[in-house]
């Protein structure tokens, strides 16, 4: 059963086309990663699904519901948080959950249960503004869990967290996934997504450029890391190599995606061009490689943050 279905969903702001004819389907039980560089339209897409942003064109369904009145009922089966945790800074964590619980029609007992799950029961009475970023993210997760939703939508849940905080958030997401929840996770932390998600869609400049299971997206392409004395000359040569499908820079050297796995042929070709490599090694293709190839924008996704979490 499709939990989320979008068809040609489009959002145009006065100065920018934020979401461009996005069509995707999220089935029940999937942990679905929605990936893209900053500003690629991820949050806008989620905002349309959650009813806070009006689509310019296209349509979507949640649990099969498409009409406005039905969507309101369908959203009762969703727990979601967008971008930064959105709470009243002067209220305690517990009071913030009381507001969300009242809107969702949930009782007090469940508030305590959710605070317990995210490890905030002891800090529930403290004001939200006194929380660390990790605690704020955990409170947001608690709020999404209040109504025991069938679909959980998380937009950059690990944003700004230190490694310990990221692990805590990842553990909670796994716990929810193990309980059979459908999770729609927007992120640009590819290593996190690769470890957590079953399916992914990659967006670039508002358009879906790749979608499928993680294995399908990563694909069977061979990639190799190549280094030589002169990167510029090497890059030009690699781009001219007939078997190369893409070339990009990384901390390790130039990463070239190849149509065949004949690295010896590549070595011969480079030698023939007068380039003698100091390093040539086959590399396991990661989601990051697929992401970089599909988005085609070296450095546009916050290269530092990517490599920091991939390594």
């Amino acid at each position: 059963m499709a939990v989320i279905e979008t068809a040609e969903l489009t959002k145009r702001f006065p100065a920018v086309l934020a979401v461009d004819r996005v069509s995707l389907t999220v089935e029940q039980g999937q942990v679905f990663g929605f990936l893209g560089p900053n500003g690629s339209g991820k949050t806008t897409t989620i905002g349309m699904l959650m009813g806070i942003i009006k689509p310019t064109a296209g349509s979507f369904r949640l649990f099969g519901a498409g009409a406005p009145r039905d969507l309101l009922a369908a959203r009762a089966r969703v727990g979601a948080t967008l971008e930064t945790p959105n709470f009243y800074p002067y209220l305690s964590g517990r009071d913030n959950l009381r507001i969300a619980a009242a809107i969702k029609g949930i009782g007090k007992a469940r508030i305590e249960e959710c605070l317990e799950i995210v490890g905030l029961r002891g800090r529930g009475k403290h004001r939200f503004r006194t929380y660390s970023l990790g605690m704020k993210q955990r409170l947001a997760l608690a709020a999404t869990m209040l109504n025991d939703p069938e679909l959980i939508v998380l937009d950059e849940p690990a944003n700004g967290l230190d490694p310990k905080g990221m692990k805590e958030v990842r553990d909670i997401i796994r716990l929810l996934a193990d309980r059979g929840k459908t999770i729609f996770l927007s992120s640009h932390l590819l290593w996190e997504v690769e470890r957590t998600c079953t399916h992914v869609s990659i967006v670039r400049k508002g358009r879906v450029v790749g979608t499928g299971t993680v294995a399908e997206i990563v694909g069977g392409e061979v990639t190799a890391v190549v280094r030589s004395e002169d990167d510029e000359v090497l890059r030009a040569a690699l781009e001219a190599f007939p078997e190369a499908t893409s070339v990009r820079a990384s901390d390790e050297g130039l990463v070239v995606a190849l149509a065949s796995d004949d690295l010896a042929a590549l070595n011969r070709y480079l030698a023939g061009q007068g380039i003698y490599v100091s390093h040539l090694a086959r590399r396991h293709r990661s989601l990051e490689d697929a992401f970089m190839d599909l988005t085609g924008e070296d450095g546009d996704v916050g290269q530092a943050s990517l490599t920091e979490f991939v390594s």
């Binding site: 905002g47 959650m50 806070i52 930064t84 969300a100 809107i103 029609g105 709020a143």
Partner: peptide, 15 residues
């Protein structure tokens, strides 16, 4: 500014 208006809607209220 706190984006709680948007969160109230996400939590289940219509605009």
């Amino acid at each position: 500014r706190w984006r709680t208006a948007r969160q109230n809607v996400i939590d289940g209220l219509s605009k």
